[in-house]
Design a protein around this nucleic acid. Structure first.
Length: 607
RNA sequence: CGGGGCGUAGCGCAGCUUGGUAGCGCGUCUGGUUCGGGACCAGAAGGUCGGAGGUUCAAAUCCUCUCGCCCCGACCA
């Protein structure tokens, strides 16, 4: 198998180096393709509507779907590409149980972290098992027991399996469901750097993912990401670019830097000197029963961009309060707050914060003066001079004309207590962190892959270490690599469809060619179609023959709806001159006449 | 988990306010006429009105409880 999947896609049907495997020939009448003119009212997003209408999926319950033959063919093709790229990147496939005894989580306590997201089942003895949402624990358990020497590392193991998550709110069909098909891989190493190290495997997986999504012909962006609750040190997300995507991503159009909202850095911004004069005397305003910044601003006649939002965090370890101040129209980024303080923080518990004197909902930066164990993080935008409104540090009151120097005082000059630094989410228009004078742009994306450098989080928690060549005990270093197979299918539809239906890229289309028979009952047509289909199959092309006794219009509409890349129409007119009509799904009109003998070559060239 | 909405034929919906024979379109089946972009005519089949309880002579309709599903938000690989 060649290493360069993206090249193999040029011959979409080429399976192994050289010989093309014969394509399938199936007839519409003998497979199950229940197309519908209308979709159920509950479907809204394009992929959901089209996959339902085109007969790919059926709903069995909230977030639970049947995969009908067309869908299964697409999923199988995606899986084949995934396997080829994973295998050539040095990974080995296996299959772990779906049913995971909860004792497995004793070390990592992730059953608690997952909470209600974890599906649980109870067996006849009362023992509780989880339906696997991911497989860090069983995989680590397996490798821990089987690997007894550092000489057996590194390892790269993966599986393709149905995963379960009891989503609070399943939505958009296959894009967020409770049961989904996913590839997950895990790597195990003695070191981060060097041959056999985590970084080497991570880079190889990164390349494999790029190859996979390229071969699927998806339009995607690789973004830097926070590693999130799964833990670890570095992470990338693979996002299909699509206006209807759930996630916002930020890109620098010049440097190529891309990141998700949680992670995105912001370039140098102007900041205040704290010497700016006050705009007026501090003025209290009674603002009762106003739930948010928007409402308070409207009530006081102040734009959110001129208000200071002070969020109270607490260090996880000891009692140190961290006040994060951003502009009212911007959002505090918890990860950046952690990075700025240098220690883990959590959003303060409301009751505790109140007990410490904070009027939650009405906190101002002035609290740094009255709470000794506290520090103030100020976002550059919030540090500027000019008019500010802020909380008044007592319930139901805000103040106008807040001034940094006058109201906070000399503590501003103490770098141990007060720091001006980036602590908010990036938005479109912010300066790029990688190119001076360039603004970040935003786009929407659907996350189809996510890779993490886990480090020793799981091996520490589960006691997985080996002796190295110097007989030193070393915690095993891990990486994990997820790829949503069923979500990839849906994301592809989301990205690639038109008013008539789905438009599949050839490499993952359920069939490459649909032969639309005008007269399925006519023997000469049947004979011609048989010859044609066999020629296509010999060329490695998957063929669906629409042999239904339907009117032409119905067949054309259905062919467009299910999105087969090429349609060959066999009818009296073309057949009389020994031809078929050749039409790409993306072409308008009726297509062009191609001699029967040429058809296979023509199709192959177009895929 | 908060807010909103919906469950009536395979799908889309009306009927509910004001209780009284359960309807329409698409699809399906039969016959006929058609046949290159979701045909036409005639006929037919198909419904525990999500479920349970209650009120009533009588409940799809009113009341109570319950289950399921969708959307917005919170959350989220």
């Amino acid at each position: 198998m060649n290493q360069h999947g993206s090249h193999a896609s040029n011959r979409g049907m080429t399976d192994h180096a050289g010989a093309a495997a014969p394509g399938v020939i199936q007839s519409w009448r003998t497979t199950l393709i229940p197309t519908a003119r209308e979709a159920p009212a509950e479907a809204e997003s394009p992929s959901h509507v089209l996959l339902l209408r085109a007969g790919f999926i059926r709903k069995l319950g909230a977030g639970i779907y049947d995969y009908l033959p067309l869908a299964w063919r697409v999923l199988s093709k995606i899986c084949r590409i995934v396997r080829q790229e994973m295998d050539s990147a040095g990974a080995a496939e296996l299959l772990l149980p779906v049913l995971l005894p909860t004792e497995l989580y004793a070390g990592t306590r992730r059953d608690l972290d997952y909470g209600d997201l974890l599906f649980k089942v109870t067996d006849r003895k009362g023992a509780v098992a989880a339906l696997g949402p991911t497989h860090e624990e069983p995989m680590t358990e397996l490798v821990k027991a089987a690997v007894t020497s550092y000489k057996q590392l590194p390892l790269n193991l993966y599986q393709i399996q149905t995963k379960f998550r009891d989503e609070a709110r399943p939505r958009s069909g296959l894009l967020r469901c409770r049961e989904f098909l996913m590839k997950d891989a895990y790597t195990f190493h003695l070191a981060v750097e060097g041959p056999g190290g985590l970084n080497e495997a991570y880079d190889a997986m990164h390349r494999a993912y790029v190859n996979i999504f390229r071969r699927c012909r998806l339009d995607f962006t690789v973004v830097e990401a926070e590693s999130g609750p799964i833990g670890g040190s570095a992470s990338h997300e693979f996002m299909v670019n699509c206006a209807s995507g759930e996630d916002t991503i930020l890109k620098c159009p010049v440097s190529g830097y891309a990141a998700n909202v949680e992670k995105c850095e912001i370039g140098e911004r102007p900041r205040g000197t704290f010497a700016e004069p006050a705009t007026g005397d501090l003025m209290e305003v009674h603002t009762p029963n106003l739930p948010g910044i928007e409402e308070v601003g409207k009530f006081m006649g102040v734009k959110p961009a001129r208000m200071l939002k002070t969020i109270v965090f607490r260090s996880a370890a000891d009692v140190m309060w961290v006040l994060a101040v951003v502009r009212g129209d911007q959002e505090v980024n918890e990860g950046k707050v952690k990075a700025a303080t240098g220690f883990p923080v959590v959003l303060a518990d409301e009751r505790e914060a109140r007990a410490a004197g904070f009027s939650i909902g009405y906190v101002s930066p002035r609290m740094i003066r009255t709470v000794p164990a506290s520090m103030l993080l100020i976002d550059p935008d919030a540090s500027l001079g000019g008019f500010w409104a802020s909380g008044a540090d007592k319930p139901d009151y805000h103040v106008k004309h807040f001034n940094w120097r006058r109201d906070v005082g000399d503590l501003l000059d103490d770098p141990r207590r007060v720091r001006v630094t980036d602590i908010r989410n990036a938005v479109a228009g912010d300066p790029s962190p990688r190119a001076a004078g360039i603004s970040l742009e935003t786009g929407r994306g659907i996350e189809v892959g996510h890779i993490f450098k886990l480090g020793t989080k799981y091996s520490d928690a589960m006691g997985f270490s080996v002796l190295d060549e110097k007989q030193h005990k070393r915690a095993v270093i891990m990486g994990c690599y997820g790829l949503g197979v069923s979500r990839t299918m849906a994301a592809c539809v989301e990205m690639s469809h038109d008013a008539n239906g789905i438009v599949w890229p050839a490499p993952i289309a359920p069939y490459h060619v649909v032969i639309t028979m005008m007269k399925p009952e006519a023997p000469e047509h049947t004979a011609a179609v048989r010859t044609l289909a066999e020629a296509l199959s010999d060329a490695g092309i998957d063929v669906l023959i629409d042999d239904r006794d339907e009117r032409p219009g119905v067949k054309f509409k259905d062919a467009d709806l299910i999105g087969i890349p090429i349609r060959l129409t066999v009818g009296d007119k073309a057949l009389a001159e020994g031809s078929v009509e050749f039409k790409l799904r993306t072409d308008p009109g009726k297509g062009e006449s191609v001699p029967l003998a040429e058809a296979a070559r023509r199709c192959l060239a177009a895929l």
